[in-house]
Design a protein around this nucleic acid. Structure first.
Lengths: 154, 154
DNA sequence: AAGAGCATCTGCGTCTGTGCAGATATCAAC
DNA sequence: GTTGATATCTGCACAGACGCAGATGCTCTT
């Protein structure tokens, strides 16, 4: 705690804003809406899942989820894969290289790559350790959010 | 480069997804839409600005921006402040403690705080150095995105 | 093989967000 | 003080996304 900079709060807030802002901007750049981006992130994080499970994760009804998947599939972001074990189910897979997403994200990726290249191996190890831990922390925090808002409120 | 872990790409992708996902989830938890969140992030990053400037930043028309500000102001996220120098202008200020945003973000903040507390002072310094650099990098990348998409495409 | 239950899809109505164009208030120049 | 330009706001209409409820196809039990 005491080792953190004075303006830690502010620095971190700005950092988060920048990351989220960029995420949205890149989504908008390839014609994605909020829910669509949300769903793609869910699929990236948790891996392929059925339509119903995706509905539960996003908090949408199954009907709305079908439309969501329609949009994503039409845009080439996901793929419908029939579940061989249960032919009623449809597994939604995130397609890693859709239309222009990589190109949209590329500038940021290159910039971050350059930044990371400037650190020593030990420092890079620290950073990636943080990335792993923070990813899990945010994932848990997100689930808590969804739980608390999805239960009593609409 | 060579010091990065094998799965650096994957780790970082998951990290980014988690952060963006959490950003959207917390926004949704307090009833914010995509553009609204976007605008708030812009205001957090770049500070108070006029309605027209915000319109330029978000890529919306001035009319849509007025509505956007209406929503944000009604929800208590921003405040309209008349510009004393030019009474035609309205400066939009981000209000730091709106309704339940802090509470929504609190779980994540606490988790990240605990993670950061586990690092040595040197490591924390490295992390915050990264936060600063990365924030700028993402900000620049976002502007590049907006420029390339806002020019020729709608 | 028949019936009950589950997962996903489709039709329809509603609500929100956005663009467009004109209106209003203010500033700058003469 | 008047005129032209600028910044923001308002009326109207359209497009997109969502919920609801019924339909379809599949699975499991009997």
């Amino acid at each position: 705690m005491r080792s953190m900079p004075e303006d830690a709060h502010e620095v971190y807030r700005r950092y988060l804003s920048a990351v989220v802002l960029h995420g949205q901007a890149s989504a908008a750049a390839v014609g994605l809406g909020a829910t669509d981006l949300y769903a793609i992130n869910v699929l990236q994080l948790s891996g392929p899942m059925t339509s119903g499970l995706l509905a539960a994760h996003t908090g949408l009804t199954t009907g709305a989820t079908t439309r969501l998947i329609d949009r994503l599939e039409r845009a080439g972001h996901v793929r419908r894969v029939p579940d061989p074990a249960d032919r009623r189910k449809v597994v939604i897979e995130h397609v890693l290289r859709p239309i222009g997403v990589d190109e949209a994200v590329d500038p940021a990726r290159r910039k971050v790559g350059e930044i990371l290249a400037g650190y020593s191996p030990d420092e890079v190890a620290t950073l990636f350790d943080y990335f792993r831990r923070a990813a899990r922390a945010y994932q848990e925090a997100t689930e808590e959010l969804r739980t608390s808002t999805g239960d009593d409120d609409g």
